[in-house]
């Protein structure tokens, strides 16, 4: 019974560490994901900047224009 307890406790620790590792990796990926955000500060009106953003999107297929 005691051996089983130690085994379970060991497993739990390993699981715990695994969970912490996976969690931190996920969080780090999420953080990396959020850093892929570019915000542009401009006083130009939409009439001015929307054509630029749309053309930029068509020139760079990786990017997609969307509404927040």
């Amino acid at each position: 019974m005691m051996n089983c307890y130690h085994w379970l406790r060991g497993i739990s620790r390993k699981s715990l560490w695994l969970a912490i590792f996976l969690c931190s990796t996920t969080l780090s990926l999420a953080a990396d994901n959020s850093t892929r955000r570019l915000t542009i500060l401009t006083s130009f009106p939409p009439k001015f900047y929307v054509p630029f953003v749309e053309k930029f999107e068509s020139a760079h297929p990786d990017f997609h224009f969307c509404s927040e």
Binding site: R37, T42, P45, Y49, F56, E57, C66
Partner: peptide, 24 residues
């Protein structure tokens, strides 16, 4: 508004914040 990247299936958000206020 924002731009999303399809690259590696990781979305890149490029949001365009419009400052409808004075330049200062």
């Amino acid at each position: 508004m924002c731009l999303l990247s399809k690259n590696l299936n990781l979305p890149i958000l490029i949001s365009i914040s419009v400052l409808n206020k004075k330049t200062t």
